[in-house]
């Protein structure tokens, strides 16, 4: 693809900002080892790369560990109520299209209480970026299963497991019409920064699902760094994988799948993930 969005982004000579220019200096509430530090670093690097000054960026979030992020950056921010980051971000972008509007949050905030907004933000396709730090648990309330939690994960509130099929954010985003859909890993801030730069440059609604381990309530997720690694193939190079995935989905979803995968310049995925897109690659 020859689109600007797919060009290499680390052209340091052009950058007038450093990542630290985007840090507020406030000390995060996150536990040591939390994946969200990596996402914060990725965002700072991506914004430095893009060369947008902090005052032209608005970070919008809801409630949860990851939703604290706007306070840790030197940009404008809006830390609203649980689950409502996307409508706030959409309202900002619609009246101030020149601002870079980025919504951030967690899996509970975005997929559970904010699930309806997630679907309709994809549909509405406003030119904003949405980064979800998915740790498959409600961390701030100390360890309850979220929509992406595995059905058999044991917890105080759901002994023996919640018993529900996990929510599939990438499939939902694609089916709902998001223009850019990608998955990243907090353990790879540089790779994540690339995805964020691509997502910001891409017109329309860009969604990046970030695997961001919660080492406090899901210590087993520290294993993710061993199993999550960037794929060496892009979907454009791997026709067979793309075809296999598309044929595995329903006929009605086929068109949007094709569009979305064709538009994805780069992606990272987990071998162990249940998502069809990684099955095709594992």
């Amino acid at each position: 693809m020859s689109d600007a969005a797919t060009k290499p982004v680390h052209d340091q000579a052009l950058c007038v900002f450093a990542a630290k220019d985007f840090a507020s200096g406030a000390h995060p509430v996150w536990c040591p080892g939390c994946g969200d530090y990596g996402v914060l670093a990725g965002l700072e690097r991506a914004l430095a790369t893009l060369g947008k000054p902090p005052h032209e960026v608005v970070l919008v979030s809801g409630i949860g560990c990851s939703s604290r992020l706007p306070g840790y950056m030197s940009t404008y921010g809006f830390h609203g109520v649980h689950g409502r980051a996307l409508p706030v971000a959409t309202g900002i972008k619609l009246v101030r299209p020149e601002l870079e509007v980025i919504a951030v949050g967690g899996d509970g905030d975005g997929y559970s209480i904010g699930g309806n907004h997630f679907i309709h933000a994809c549909r509405r396709n406003a030119d904003i970026l949405y980064v979800v730090m998915d740790n498959r648990v409600y961390g701030m309330t100390k360890g309850q299963p979220s929509p992406t939690t595995e059905p058999d994960w044991d917890s105080d509130i759901a002994p023996g497991g919640i018993g529900l099929r996990p929510f599939n954010p990438l499939a939902i985003a694609i089916a709902s019409g998001a223009n850019y859909v990608a998955r990243g890993f907090s353990g790879d801030p540089d790779g994540l920064a690339n995805l964020i730069v691509d997502g910001i440059r891409w017109p329309g609604f860009a969604f990046i699902e970030v695997l961001s381990p919660c080492i406090t309530f899901r210590p087993e997720q520290s294993e993710w760094k061993k199993v999550v690694r960037p794929t060496s193939l892009t979907i454009e190079q791997d026709r067979a994988a793309a075809t296999a995935w598309c044929s595995a989905t329903t006929a009605s979803a086929w068109v949007s799948c094709t569009v979305a995968t064709a538009r994805r310049p780069r992606r990272h995925c987990s071998r162990k993930s249940r998502l069809p897109i990684s099955n095709a690659n594992s």
Partner: peptide, 13 residues
Amino acid sequence: LAAINLALGASYA
């Protein structure tokens, strides 16, 4: 919920 948050975002901006 979206309606009022959309308005609030626009006003903030």
